[in-house]
Amino acid sequence: MTDPRTAVAAVVDPEIRVITIDELGILRAVDEDPATGRVVVTITPTYTGCPAMDVIRDDIRRALAVAGHPDAEVRTVFSPAWSTDWISADGRAKLAAAGIAPPAPRGDGTAVPVTLAVRCPRCGSPETAQLSRFGSTACKALWRCRSCSEPFDHLKAL
């Protein structure tokens, strides 16, 4: 039987499959009742309308069942609101390695932060331009590198 925290932390994000939900910062707590064995997992969405949440809940329950914890409940909380500052250093490195530019620090949260230079995750050049502030998923914007001409995703600071 695997420790429930270890099992849940290994669940990958269904839309960005190179990063786990723990590295993404959306896994808030894993609590096991020692008497009953019941596991309660608390997660928070990146965006309110994130369509991946149902899949993430299913994946968590499946991972716990495989790890020997069939009695599991997944709770969703909204406060405090998720921030890209919660993405771990490992998570940022994995995003960059997968061609997704990680987010800059978000500032005080009251205004949309200005990102001065987003480095191309492929060639490292700071000569990049935003094509669209909204991208393939709610959490990403679409950018292009002027040096190597490759388009790439950028995880928006939130």
Partner: peptide
């Protein structure tokens, strides 16, 4: 195309808030 994606994303944010 970029605006198509942008408007759909904004719609999704509104829908998320509406559900809550």
């Amino acid at each position: 195309m970029e605006e198509d994606i942008a408007l759909a994303n904004i719609a999704l944010d509104q829908l998320g808030a509406a559900r809550l």
